Simulated assay, not measured.
Amino acid sequence: MSETTTGRADTNETSQSVAAGETAISARLTEAAALAKAALVCADSEREAVRIVLDLDVPLSEAKTLHGAICLIGHINRKVAEATAPGD
């Protein structure tokens, strides 16, 4: 985050990062949903269905990592807001 002339953190960059992260999470979960639907279609072939379900690991793991990053950004923002709050 960059500092403005008032000394407060510029939240525009943070908002853009959070929005980009949310978009990325949505993309990963959409991919995971498509894989899950493909596994259902292949339900008659257990081996193929299991192979497809195992492919869910990557997009779900990436979505979880992105979620953690967004939570960390939120935590940092709260700490910055507390530290720069008037009356301290």
Rank of each mutant, 00 (worst) to 15 (best):
K37T: 15
A36I: 05
G21D: 08
L35N: 09
H75W: 08
N77Y: 09
A27T: 10
V80I: 11
A83M: 09
L66Y: 01
A33G: 11
A81R: 00
H67C: 13
G74D: 08
L35F: 06
E13L: 11
S45A: 05
P59E: 07
E3I: 02
D44N: 08
D55W: 14
V50M: 04
G74Y: 03
A85C: 14
R28L: 06
D88N: 15
A36F: 05
E3G: 09
D10W: 02
E82M: 03
L66D: 03
E46F: 01
N12H: 11
I25K: 14
A69M: 05
A81M: 05
N77M: 14
A49L: 01
D10R: 02
H67K: 11
C42F: 01
Q16K: 08
R28N: 14
A20W: 11
L29F: 05
A9S: 15
T84H: 00
C42G: 02
A20P: 09
S15W: 13
G68T: 03
E22C: 15
T5I: 09
L60C: 06
D88R: 14
L66T: 01
L35P: 10
L56E: 03
A83K: 05
I76H: 13
T5V: 06
T5W: 07
G74F: 02
A27M: 10
A63T: 00
E13Q: 02
V58P: 00
M1A: 10
A49P: 00
E46P: 04
I52T: 12
A43V: 00
S2C: 09
T11E: 09
R47I: 04
R28D: 15
A39K: 07
T30P: 06
I73Q: 05
L54R: 14
T14V: 08
A38C: 06
T11Y: 11
I76Q: 02
R78M: 04
T84G: 00
V41N: 12
E22T: 10
E22K: 15
D55K: 08
V18S: 12
D88L: 15
G87K: 04
G21L: 03
L56A: 03
A24G: 15
L66G: 01
A20I: 06
S17N: 13
S15C: 09
L72A: 15
L35I: 07
T30I: 10
T23K: 15
I73S: 07
G21M: 01
P86A: 09
T65K: 08
A39F: 01
T84C: 00
A32L: 01
P86S: 10
S17C: 06
D55I: 07
A36Q: 09
I70D: 12
A27I: 11
A19K: 12
A36D: 12
